Amino acid sequence: MDKNQTGIEYMKEGNWEAAAKVFMEAIEENPDDTVAYINFGNVLTAVGETEKAMNFYDKAISLDSSAVSAYYSKGSLFYEMERFAEAKDMFEQAAKKGMESGDNYFMLGMCLVQLDQGRLAIPYLQRSTELLKTDAEAFFQYGLCLAKEQYIDEAIIQLEHSVSLDSSHADAFYNLGVAYGFKEEAAKALDMFNRALEIEPGHLLAGHGKKLIEESIG
Score class of each variant (00 low, 15 high):
residue 195 R to I: 00
residue 215 E to I: 10
residue 11 M to S: 11
residue 47 V to H: 05
residue 133 K to A: 10
residue 197 L to Y: 03
residue 181 G to I: 15
residue 107 M to I: 02
residue 21 K to F: 11
residue 33 D to S: 07
residue 209 G to V: 10
residue 185 E to D: 15
residue 98 G to H: 05
residue 104 N to W: 01
residue 192 M to D: 03
residue 16 W to T: 10
residue 108 L to A: 07
residue 48 G to K: 13
residue 109 G to A: 06
residue 128 S to M: 11
residue 7 G to S: 00
residue 72 Y to I: 15
residue 96 K to N: 11
residue 95 A to Y: 04
residue 96 K to C: 04
residue 9 E to L: 08
residue 27 I to C: 08
residue 101 S to G: 00
residue 193 F to V: 11
residue 98 G to C: 04
residue 138 A to I: 09
residue 194 N to I: 13
residue 101 S to H: 00
residue 68 V to F: 03
residue 213 I to S: 06
residue 202 G to R: 05
residue 26 A to P: 01
residue 46 A to G: 06
residue 150 Q to D: 13
residue 194 N to L: 14
residue 216 S to T: 15
residue 131 L to H: 05
residue 58 D to P: 05
residue 172 A to T: 01
residue 68 V to E: 04
residue 20 A to L: 13
residue 113 V to Y: 11
residue 106 F to C: 03
residue 60 A to G: 10
residue 36 A to P: 05
residue 207 G to D: 01
residue 90 M to R: 08
residue 53 A to H: 02
residue 149 E to H: 10
residue 11 M to K: 10
residue 107 M to T: 07
residue 189 A to G: 12
residue 168 S to L: 14
residue 27 I to H: 04
residue 202 G to E: 11
residue 83 R to I: 00
residue 202 G to K: 06
residue 76 S to Y: 15
residue 152 I to M: 03
residue 79 Y to R: 02
residue 26 A to E: 06
residue 201 P to Y: 03
residue 215 E to S: 09
residue 12 K to T: 12
residue 117 Q to D: 12
residue 81 M to S: 04
residue 175 N to I: 05
residue 56 F to P: 06
residue 48 G to W: 08
residue 147 A to Q: 10
residue 214 E to V: 07
residue 43 V to W: 07
residue 57 Y to V: 15
residue 196 A to N: 02
residue 143 G to H: 06
residue 50 T to Y: 11
residue 80 E to H: 08
residue 160 E to Q: 14
residue 186 A to N: 13
residue 13 E to F: 07
residue 5 Q to G: 02
residue 207 G to V: 04
residue 156 I to W: 02
residue 86 E to V: 12
residue 95 A to L: 09
residue 200 E to F: 13
residue 171 D to C: 01
residue 135 D to L: 03
residue 204 L to C: 02
residue 135 D to N: 12
residue 111 C to G: 08
residue 112 L to F: 11
residue 40 F to R: 09
residue 168 S to Q: 14
residue 22 V to P: 02
residue 62 S to L: 14
residue 164 S to M: 09
residue 84 F to S: 07
residue 111 C to Q: 09
residue 50 T to W: 03
residue 2 D to T: 08
residue 10 Y to Q: 08
residue 41 G to K: 09
residue 198 E to V: 13
residue 176 L to P: 00
residue 183 K to W: 00
residue 18 A to L: 15
residue 81 M to L: 14
residue 3 K to N: 02
residue 192 M to P: 02
residue 179 A to N: 05
residue 66 S to H: 09
residue 26 A to Y: 03
residue 56 F to Y: 14
residue 125 L to M: 13
residue 204 L to V: 13
residue 33 D to R: 08
residue 211 K to C: 08
residue 6 T to K: 06
residue 142 Y to I: 15
residue 117 Q to V: 13
residue 134 T to L: 05
residue 13 E to S: 12
residue 58 D to L: 08
residue 64 D to G: 05
residue 23 F to Q: 15
residue 90 M to Q: 15
residue 55 N to C: 11
residue 104 N to C: 13
residue 157 I to Y: 04
residue 145 C to V: 11
residue 77 L to T: 15
residue 103 D to T: 13
residue 14 G to E: 14
residue 101 S to I: 05
residue 160 E to K: 14
residue 68 V to A: 04
residue 77 L to Q: 09
residue 204 L to S: 12
residue 66 S to P: 00
residue 217 I to Q: 12
residue 123 P to T: 14
residue 101 S to R: 05
residue 176 L to W: 00
residue 156 I to L: 06
residue 129 T to N: 06
residue 95 A to G: 00
residue 78 F to W: 14
residue 158 Q to E: 10
residue 51 E to K: 14
residue 35 V to A: 13
residue 126 Q to N: 10
residue 36 A to S: 09
